[in-house]
Write a protein that binds this DNA or RNA. Sequence first.
DNA 1: TTTAAATGATAGTAACACTATCATAAACAA
DNA 2: TTGTTTATGATAGTGTTACTATCATTTAAA
Lengths: 225, 225
Amino acid sequence: MEVQLQIRMNEKLFLRDPEQTELGKKIIRHSIQVIYKNGFELFTFKKLAEDIGTTEAGIYRYFENKHRLLIYITAWYWGWLQFRVVFNTNNIKEPSVKLKKIIQLLATTVVDDDKTIHINEDLLHQIIISEGSKAYLTKHVTEDNKEQLFKPYKDLCAVIADIILDFNPKYKYPRSLASSIIEIAHFQNFFKNNLPALTDFGQTKDELKVVAFLEDLVFSSIRKK
Amino acid sequence: MEVQLQIRMNEKLFLRDPEQTELGKKIIRHSIQVIYKNGFELFTFKKLAEDIGTTEAGIYRYFENKHRLLIYITAWYWGWLQFRVVFNTNNIKEPSVKLKKIIQLLATTVVDDDKTIHINEDLLHQIIISEGSKAYLTKHVTEDNKEQLFKPYKDLCAVIADIILDFNPKYKYPRSLASSIIEIAHFQNFFKNNLPALTDFGQTKDELKVVAFLEDLVFSSIRKK
DNA sequence: TTTAAATGATAGTAACACTATCATAAACAA
DNA sequence: TTGTTTATGATAGTGTTACTATCATTTAAA
């Protein structure tokens, strides 16, 4: 039996649903590669079109602009990550074990997931680390938020916050801690590879050090005092 | 007696030193306003030139491009913040008191500093929160880093890490914790105002809640166990 | 007072971020 | 089968952005 994972996306993110057509799926797959290669600032629909072998106009039929496409792929990532969190913490009773699992999922390299053929999850993870925050660090974040574009991020955050409360119902900052874990996981990963002086991990490529730092931080904070 | 604060900037950041001329100082002052108003993506040298009453070519004589200008003003901010940290923790013996002071400096609204006439520190602080990370989240971060463009950030981080070690010499992640404090202070502030579901601070504009969260996080982690 | 440096004014180019139009190919319905 | 949507391809065009270049003029330093 083969299981295919499909993540339902907010319809306001696109003009035409990219999951429904071949070209649409190509746009998603190739956009991840082209953003990874160029960085989001130098990423253009023209480059993407050339990579796919279509024209700019073709892309514009699916996405209003490159920023919406970025929100789309980040939203997809958050939805996918939430699935993995729920899946991997299922049947675990101990909230501490769940939290450790989550930290590991957040902070370590993604292994390409066969359940989604047209998305390279490892590249996507790298993009989220260096470009993800640009999805919401804009002047129009409030309007975008009203359209629920960041719901997958907020949902994931809520799931983690609930587990934190499960561990210690008296902890006062479950959501702030949840969003901080997510952001730190990405930032420390970026710093480790690009600005190592901002970390204690040196040039060692060992992601487990980020995990150890996060575990220490989280469990120190939420332990019952 | 009047004290003027001048922060020595890396010469690679500019083509002509903006501190040395009237137009240069106008570029810095107005760029903060125009970036604040438009956000960095929609900020252009043309808009800045119009705001100042000069021409695009005039700006290009000082800065290679808008990204270098962003690095310049973020670097200035880190330099200024380090000065404030050192100044405000001077003569304090207790590292815990120092750390609380630092958290407060990082997480609360800046009061405009009269020692630098041509810079509005409150606006600058707002820009750092929403645009600051874009200075290094690029494909060319490694080359920029080789030119020492992020030294002020790294220096500030080192100062904070030293105080953390002073509090607990056995703590294993002083630099990662320092950079995390800085980033969380900004992100939680941004989330509080724009994506409140990612925090526990609701729509209350009370910055002291971010301070309380950070203090709890930091002192839980670094206390001697 | 001479000379150099900084600024202003203007023009120009390649790329980017779109919008519009029309032809064709594939899918689907009568 | 034919007729009709629907998706795609191909091409063109517009306004803006991100620069570079040139030359005249004003301001500051020697």
